[in-house]
Simulated assay, not measured.
Amino acid sequence: MTATLSILFVACWSSGFIGAKLGAGSAEVPTLLMWRFLPLAVVLVPIVGLSARRRNTMPTPRALGRQVVIGMLSQSGYLLSVYWAVDLGVNTGTTALIDGIQPLVAAALLGPVLGVAVPRMQWVGLVIGLGGVAMVTAADAGAGASAPWWAYAIPFLGMVSLVASTFVQQRAPTSVPPLQALAIHCSTSAIVFTTLAFASGAAAPPSVNTFWIALLWLIVLSTFGGYGLYWLLLRRIGITSVNTLMFLIAPVTAVWGALMFGESFTPFTALGLAVGILAVIVVTRVDNRPKKQDEGTDSCPARASITSR
């Protein structure tokens, strides 16, 4: 059962990058993101709000404000960078791989800030992971991709946004229930992207079927499938194992994008993805050392903040 759930999780999480590509040709980025999160906010806020009142678990104004900031960083800022990069022509696999090294960057850079000891091999893993990203990016750019050279920097901005959200999350004195946090994050994104869509004059949804298929794809597979399975697996197998699964997303996305959209997938791309997986193995061996810590919590700085793709 756990193996099946793990496969579904990787597929659903990867589907977010594919859905971004699917919707890129049918609407502007703010339009697609506005209509992705507006229905989610309308559905989630009343349900979660009513449940919180009944259980007397409403967040304090300070906790609410912190979750808004986390949502803007881990969801709004991150997804805007992903969709923008894909819309400009960056391959979905390349974008997924750059996102995939976020746990390595967070563990290496935020560990000292948060007072967590960072083993030397985690730094080694980060360097190897960055090497894999460089190889895949070079293969993507050299295969005649339509994206301008500067577009490859955009996913890195999203990764920085994720790292910043991890820092804010780890500094929080109290935790917020996952569904409650999801409702706050989706509402924040709905406000951000609705504002952007109206400001750019692109709020009206297009009438083409591709747009609505992409929206259904993103809401069902990426948000509910990816995010829901993440929390389910976190309780079943722990954060270290889930983080390991996250690194399978880049190769799955790269193959999926090549098959579905004809994106480039060269031997050099495969080599770069293999190097990225090697980085995971290096870091995972460090994380799997015996320790007296509950792996079902978000105490690991490598992936404390999770966004719905």
Rank of each mutant, 00 (worst) to 15 (best):
T4R: 06
G77R: 04
V282T: 15
S299Y: 07
R53H: 04
P290K: 13
L22K: 00
L8Q: 03
A151S: 11
L234D: 04
S207P: 01
W123I: 15
V283R: 00
E28R: 01
T188I: 08
T195P: 00
T240E: 13
E295R: 09
A106T: 15
L88E: 14
A197L: 08
A250R: 00
R66Q: 09
P30T: 12
P290F: 07
F268E: 12
A214P: 05
R289M: 13
I154L: 12
A203H: 06
P173V: 06
V29E: 07
L271A: 15
G158W: 05
L104M: 13
A107K: 11
L109P: 03
V68M: 13
T195G: 09
G144K: 13
P30A: 10
Q102F: 00
E295F: 05
L182M: 14
I281N: 04
S207L: 11
F211G: 08
G228L: 07
L5W: 02
L229G: 04
T297S: 12
W13M: 09
P39D: 11
S308A: 14
V118E: 03
G226K: 09
A151R: 07
V163G: 02
V280T: 15
A96F: 11
L215H: 03
T188C: 02
T210P: 01
A270M: 04
A138K: 08
V208E: 14
V43W: 06
L88I: 07
I98E: 13
L40R: 01
V48L: 05
N91F: 05
V283M: 12
L179A: 13
P205C: 07
Q293G: 07
T92V: 15
F198Q: 01
I154A: 09
R235A: 14
W212A: 04
F9D: 03
M121L: 14
G19D: 08
D99E: 11
V282D: 01
L157C: 10
P178D: 05
I70T: 11
S299V: 00
S189H: 00
A63C: 01
A258V: 02
